[in-house]
Nucleic acid binder design. Structure first.
Lengths: 395, 395
DNA sequence: TGATATTTGTTTTTGTATAAGACAAAAACA
DNA sequence: TGTTTTTGTCTTATACAAAAACAAATATCA
């Protein structure tokens, strides 16, 4: 809980300035960047003295470290001392409650995965107390591997496949057969330390991982589509996740799409259900994808892939017209099909797109099965880098 | 240009605090609210002295006025002096470039329309110089009616039916037959005063009017749908307009929708084109709507209205699944059909909605044909109420 | 009617910010 | 070796809000 010292800021006094400057400095160091105090001062329009003060606070908090050697800048004068994020300055737990497995990760400040546990989900739990206990037990095992850093854990993020309200309660998770599960408040109550707890939708979590890891801090506008048995989605605009009125946005899988003469939900036309005839019963989707890729050329396979291409394109085009994402990121097991079919998909999308509309960059997600867990942990990490929200009135 | 004194703020020094506090106070006075300094201090968590200082600045700038009588609070002690926005403290110009007419409005700080000019669009202009001159002439006439307040004009907002880039250039406006029109920069260059100039999409502008006028400052998440010959849309999330990667978001009219056995664009299934057989050639859509409402019961009319109901519902449901708007606002001439058909539309939507999903509140826009012009002017007005963006680094 | 309590808005004092400038230290260059 | 350039810290000046004190204006109660 080192960071929380920096967190409880009065929104009024001059200490707000100090807080803002510290955060702005910290944000410059994201993505592994290393800068001198003078560099930061130039980029932020502050004096060197001010960045120096901010660094003293951040060094004391253990969030940053000085590294003697600085990148060879070939400048004339006295070389600056490099400052960068201290990877072991703070840790964050993320757990993805999947349909088949529970994935827990421990993230450090540099977004590295320090520990990882995957285990089968097991029987569905029917009340909040049980699942909370189960998750806390997983987290305890995750931390026991490195007991030294337990003090530095900032909080836990949980991702769930289903509708999650703004307060972190699971409204409806069909795969888990949960309804109105106050998971976040339950975990907060049972948390062994005063961790912050955030529960969110798995597509949001996955998108957050992509966002946090994207090289440019402002990845701008992005649509993340998770192609698995169902299809989930998350919308990023101006670097922020679009939540919607109740936090349910992004259910792109249930939009109605028309492609190649068929009219059905996007999920049916481009999700794993499209391949049920080709996949074996109970076969993991990822294995099925490998099988498909190995059998390109087979007539039955090609026919279904054709259907997939047009279903995916048609669904994405609808979303593009509505959202104009600068980038589309495809995740989930079915995304593995994209590279082989990218040319056809892009051509199909371009053909359907309205005149004047911009073709988004499309690419496969950089995270795989752990993405949601990592992103859930990153939601906690984000709070350390967040600038104060000046709009909130009810102090 | 009174407000701009308050605008050029260094993001570093302590004056940032003064600026933030002034803006936070000003924002409390939106929507005609009247508060005492002590009220504001309580709501913002500041001392009375601080709000008093902020008020002195705002009073000097002419943006607020003291009103001797305060609402009867039935409190014990000394009554506070009410402070409220000074309606004539600043003015904003908005022009909507419609397909048939040009609508110009002059807005005051309280969102009142002070003057208004509507005139036929006339022949299409083929280069940026002409249309800029045309618009500036309209604006000049608008201001000549009240020459005294020209000094207090903050800027001009222009709304255009088509794709507008983030830099305010018109990328593609099919109805106007414009392509790659650098309208904003042209107007900035030719502007007679150092006004700020903003060009935006007409649906964005309309949505902004609804947002600015909505009682709760944080209208949260909202989908605005403009039902005219085409169908435009704008997405509001967390009180902000979702722009998309290039500023083209909201083209809901071109999403593919399936309803009642037909598969076509939303525009074809729920726009005015659906009624072409019933409307007379060249008849304004608003008149056609009156005709339809007068002839409910007629078989041909009812059949088309049935189609409209299911087309509209299907298109909206897709958007709801993707965006989860807390509220849907229907604007444009066809929105006049909604009140008579609201029960059927709501039932249709509820039937199609995914389990657990929240039914948004649906209502007709409070603005009519002038909405886009008013909203365009409001984009300029918003800059006076905006809090500083702490994220910008390149000072 | 008059004394007291309560609330408001301003003034003064105090603590804490950053900017500006001066300074020594560390390197490049001549 | 001496000069120049750049860095990071220190000191001083200035600006801001909080805290506390204050007078003014009203309600309440005896």
């Amino acid at each position: 809980m080192l960071g929380s010292q920096t967190e409880d800021v009065a929104l009024n006094t001059t200490s707000l300035l100090r807080h803002i400057n510290a955060r702005r400095c910290l944000r410059l160091l994201q993505n592994g960047r290393q800068l001198s105090r003078a560099d930061m001062a130039r980029q932020l329009g502050l004096t060197r003295a001010t960045t120096g003060n901010a660094m003293r606070v951040l060094l004391d908090a253990g969030l940053v470290v000085e590294s003697a050697e600085m990148s060879p800048e070939s400048r004339k004068g006295r070389p600056g001392v490099g400052v960068s994020l201290n990877p072991s300055g703070a840790y964050f737990v993320g757990v993805d409650v999947g349909t088949r497995s529970l994935t827990g990760v421990l993230l450090d400040l540099q977004m590295n995965v320090v520990s990882r546990i995957v285990e089968p989900t097991g029987p569905r739990y029917r009340d909040a107390g049980h699942i909370a206990a189960r998750l806390l037990s997983l987290i305890e095992r995750l931390l026991n591997e490195n007991p030294a850093l337990q003090e530095k854990v900032e909080g836990i993020g949980i991702s769930v496949p289903g509708l999650v309200g703004r307060d972190g309660s699971v409204v409806h998770a069909p795969f888990l057969e949960w309804r109105n599960y106050p998971l976040q408040s339950e975990l907060t109550a049972r948390s062994p330390a005063d961790w912050s707890v955030m529960v969110c939708n798995d597509a949001f979590a996955f998108a957050n991982a992509e966002l946090a890891a994207s090289a440019t801090a402002k990845a701008g506008s992005m649509l993340v589509v998770l192609l698995a048995e169902g299809i989930g989605g998350a919308i990023i605009d101006d670097g922020r996740v679009v939540m919607g009125g109740h936090g349910y946005s992004g259910e792109i899988g249930h939009t109605i799409v028309s492609a190649a003469g068929r009219v059905d939900t996007f999920e049916m036309l481009a999700g794993a259900k499209l391949f049920t005839r080709l996949f074996e019963e109970g076969q993991p989707v990822a294995d099925g994808v490998q099988m498909l890729l190995a059998n390109v050329g087979d007539k039955a396979v090609d026919a279904v892939l054709d259907a997939w291409v047009s279903g995916l394109s048609a669904g994405l085009v609808n979303a593009i017209h509505l959202l104009d994402p600068g980038r589309i990121v495809l995740g989930g097991p079915l995304a593995g099909l994209y590279p082989k079919l990218s040319r056809r998909i892009q051509a199909d999308i371009k053909r359907r797109l309205l005149a004047g509309f911009a073709m988004p960059e499309i690419r496969v997600a950089q995270f795989g099965a752990d993405g949601a867990a990592i992103g859930a942990a990153a939601t906690i990490r984000d709070t350390l880098f967040a600038l104060p929200d000046l709009e909130t009135n009810t102090l």
